[in-house]
Computed example of a mutant assay.
Amino acid sequence: MANEVLVARGLRKAYGERVAVQEVDLVLRPGEVLGLLGPNGAGKSTTVGMICGLTVPDAGTVTLSGGTSLATDEAGYKRRIGLVPQDIALYEELPAGMNVELFGALYGMAPELLKRRRDEVLAMVGLADRARDKPSTFSGGMKRRLNIACALVHDPEILLLDEPTAGVDPQSRNAIFDNLEMLKRAGKALVYTTHYMEEAERLADRITIIDHGRVVAEGRQAELFARLPAAQTLHVEIAGEPDDALLAGLPGVKRSGQRLDVSVGDIARDAGPLLAALAQRGVEVRGIASARATLEDVFLALTGRQLRD
């Protein structure tokens, strides 16, 4: 574990007959954001719960650098981890500053250090001027940011964030992203679960996709895109509506009226031959545009389009 701050091996959790997580492995390094993605009910929150010690796994282990685990040093293990839960966890009628102090006190922080850290984390999330105000008067985005402050007050090495931007406005989302990118630069290791693919594309260094409790893909974004049959698409506007028989010999072409959508592996390599083939068939091209595959394309290709209610 020389370059790894957290290693999870063989995590399993079942609730009666339903297996929520099966044989999940995760590795996290300092200064890295690991995006944990999956459909509803895939096992993301259960996995996060087992990592932070709120859920007891039926099998498997989670070990921090230096060999620390819940079995060897429960208090020391939990001090090294901060959790931002999916559901907002605050005392609504307790001032924001006191919420932060309460969470710090749970970790046994000395009073002077706690006060200093309270001020630092509230300033970091943009709530220094609201320390005396109650969360019951806050917007959803402010509550989310306060939850992050509470998770950071004890200065953990690892931060687990379970859908931290659910229900917040774009301004708060971007403020949260800025906070997380700053933490990453400071060497913190982050696990980030989300349903918003654009968030994972922006933040994650590596991505793990789980479905039905199992890991179905893991790697850097480029590695995940490589799993698609075509990583890019050409949109070709044509004159008229040629007979589909003219297009039959062109691989990866789908026609919708006067537009052709063509899946290609490499635009620079494949665009020229495609245009030449269209010209040979007498198809007049009026315009061409390109688009790359997105993380959502990868996600749907791996987990399917079936609803997960």
Results as ranks from 00 to 15, higher is better:
residue 161 L to G: 12
residue 133 D to A: 13
residue 148 I to T: 04
residue 162 D to Y: 15
residue 108 G to Y: 11
residue 130 R to E: 06
residue 124 M to P: 15
residue 147 N to G: 14
residue 149 A to L: 06
residue 144 R to K: 13
residue 161 L to P: 12
residue 138 F to C: 11
residue 108 G to N: 13
residue 108 G to Q: 14
residue 122 L to V: 02
residue 151 A to W: 06
residue 111 P to Y: 10
residue 109 M to T: 13
residue 115 K to N: 04
residue 109 M to S: 08
residue 154 H to A: 08
residue 138 F to P: 04
residue 150 C to E: 04
residue 109 M to F: 10
residue 143 K to W: 04
residue 142 M to L: 08
residue 113 L to G: 01
residue 119 D to Y: 00
residue 117 R to W: 02
residue 108 G to D: 13
residue 120 E to K: 01
residue 138 F to T: 10
residue 136 S to L: 09
residue 145 R to G: 02
residue 135 P to K: 06
residue 132 R to H: 08
residue 112 E to H: 09
residue 139 S to Y: 09
residue 124 M to W: 14
residue 153 V to S: 01
residue 153 V to E: 01
residue 152 L to V: 11
residue 133 D to I: 03
residue 115 K to P: 03
residue 111 P to H: 08
residue 143 K to D: 04
residue 129 D to H: 15
residue 125 V to K: 04
residue 134 K to H: 11
residue 151 A to N: 06
residue 112 E to Q: 13
residue 150 C to M: 04
residue 110 A to S: 11
residue 113 L to A: 15
residue 121 V to G: 01
residue 125 V to A: 05
residue 124 M to S: 15
residue 160 L to I: 15
residue 157 E to Y: 05
residue 116 R to H: 04
residue 136 S to P: 05
residue 152 L to S: 11
residue 118 R to W: 00
residue 118 R to S: 00
residue 139 S to M: 14
residue 130 R to L: 07
residue 127 L to M: 12
residue 129 D to P: 08
residue 121 V to S: 01
residue 108 G to V: 09
residue 149 A to E: 07
residue 131 A to Q: 06
residue 119 D to V: 00
residue 109 M to L: 15
residue 134 K to R: 15
residue 146 L to A: 01
residue 164 P to C: 13
residue 110 A to H: 08
residue 113 L to D: 09
residue 145 R to N: 02
residue 118 R to T: 01
residue 138 F to R: 09
residue 137 T to Q: 13
residue 130 R to V: 02
residue 143 K to Y: 05
residue 140 G to F: 14
residue 159 L to W: 09
residue 108 G to K: 08
residue 131 A to S: 13
residue 119 D to W: 00
residue 158 I to W: 09
residue 116 R to E: 08
residue 125 V to Y: 04
residue 140 G to E: 09
residue 118 R to M: 00
residue 122 L to N: 02
residue 156 P to N: 05
residue 142 M to P: 05
residue 140 G to R: 07
residue 144 R to Q: 10
residue 123 A to E: 15
residue 126 G to A: 15
residue 149 A to Q: 06
residue 112 E to Y: 03
residue 130 R to G: 03
residue 159 L to I: 14
residue 124 M to I: 07
residue 131 A to D: 01
residue 161 L to N: 14
residue 158 I to N: 06
residue 151 A to M: 10
residue 110 A to C: 08
residue 127 L to K: 08
residue 155 D to K: 13
residue 150 C to W: 02
residue 129 D to G: 14
residue 123 A to K: 11
residue 139 S to I: 14
residue 112 E to C: 04
residue 125 V to I: 12
residue 136 S to K: 12
residue 158 I to K: 10
residue 144 R to E: 12
residue 114 L to E: 03
residue 157 E to F: 07
residue 132 R to W: 04
residue 144 R to N: 07
residue 115 K to G: 05
residue 123 A to C: 12
residue 131 A to R: 01
residue 131 A to T: 01
residue 112 E to G: 06
residue 144 R to T: 07
residue 116 R to Q: 15
residue 137 T to S: 14
residue 131 A to G: 02
residue 161 L to S: 14
residue 112 E to N: 11
residue 131 A to N: 01
residue 111 P to G: 07
residue 163 E to W: 12
residue 160 L to P: 12
